[in-house]
């Protein structure tokens, strides 16, 4: 019996560790599919995390906390959207600016709240099904954001590949000039995509500060925004593979934490390098095949669009 609960516990923590990555990467995938590269994920996650935490602490409502996280992410992403879509700024530089700004503003906003405890996001248990051994708690006793993250993978997959709007969004990402010439508003579609990415990154941050470690710590995302960006490349821009990738990284994170817990004779910091090193390794394995990346990447990714008409 005890063995089963340990397995359950490990699987549950893997899901927890994967969820912020899954949320942020799913959002960024849609942004990149529209042809925009937003490197500000880390900054948006941080501002989402601190906003969600403040809202949860002051109102006591976890729903408001989640909404605040998403809203903060959207506001941040709009800064990026205005910069790149209306002021035609370089996307790489603008994304970096967003991350640097996000680190600063989140630490500024979060100062009065450092170290304060909140209650962890409640789990929404589904009766009967939750009692199934091992799989029960894993599938049916999770919190809202975990259900939502998996739902969004399915929803985004359906949207991108089964709906008309998704087809248009992909067209904009593949050839903005062609999409523009047949009458689609490239700027508007991309702006919405960027805002969606902001909301999802904000939710990823909210999950960190409300559920994963229910507290606020400066720079608590610890590079997860960058790992999420790498996941999109790893997934060759396919939502289902983002899910696989995120859970794989969740597993690596938990694996190294457990190694630390078991008192392995390796310093904790060395084990903490593992998720970053694995990310680099995975990036290398995927991008080794240059033509494959070229085929799956949206053709207009990172390019500036300006129409003269």
């Amino acid at each position: 019996m005890a063995a089963i609960t340990t397995v359950e516990l490990i699987l549950l923590t893997v899901v927890s560790a994967a969820t912020p990555l899954l949320l942020a990467a799913t959002g960024e995938l849609v942004v990149e599919k529209s042809g925009i590269l937003n490197l500000g994920v880390e900054g948006m996650m941080l501002v989402g995390a601190v906003s969600a935490f403040i809202a949860m602490l002051t109102t006591g409502s976890w729903a408001l906390g989640i909404v605040a996280g998403a809203a903060a992410g959207v506001i941040m992403s709009m800064l990026f959207g205005v910069l790149t879509l209306f002021f035609l700024a370089n996307q790489v530089a603008s994304g970096l600016a967003l991350t640097l700004f996000g680190i600063g503003i989140s630490s500024l906003l979060g100062i009065p709240f450092i170290g304060l405890p909140i209650e962890k996001l409640p789990t929404l248990d589904i009766p009967v099904l939750g009692d199934i051994p091992i799989l029960g708690p894993l599938l049916f006793e999770q919190d809202f954001l975990i259900y939502f993250s998996v739902f969004m993978v399915v929803a985004v997959n359906f949207f991108l590949f089964r709906s008309r709007a998704g087809l248009i969004l992909r067209a904009v990402g593949e050839s903005h000039d062609a999409a523009h010439s047949i009458g689609y508003s490239v700027i508007r579609i991309r702006f919405f995509a960027v805002m969606f990415g902001g909301a999802m990154a904000g939710l990823g941050g909210a999950f960190l500060s409300l559920s994963y470690t229910p507290m606020w710590v400066e720079q608590m995302t610890a590079g997860r925004g960058w790992i999420a960006l790498a996941l999109v490349v790893f997934a060759t821009w396919k939502p289902g593979r983002v899910l696989i990738g995120a859970y794989l990284f969740g597993a690596v994170t938990i694996f190294q934490l457990h190694l630390q817990g078991f008192g392995v004779q390796i310093p904790g910091q060395v084990l903490s390098m593992l998720p970053y090193l694995v990310t680099i390794l995975v990036l290398v394995l995927i991008s080794r095949n240059a033509s494959r990346v070229k085929l799956s990447a949206p053709a207009c990714l990172g390019q500036i669009f300006h129409s003269n008409t």
């Binding site: 910069l83 035609l88 700024a89 970096l96 600016a97 996000g102 630490s107 500024l108 100062i111």
Partner: peptide
Amino acid sequence: LPLGIAGVFQGMLLFFLLSCDILIHY
């Protein structure tokens, strides 16, 4: 004042620079 203010200022500076830069080419 919290030290984060320096980061906010730096971020804003880059934001404003990137948006003003449109005047170089347009």
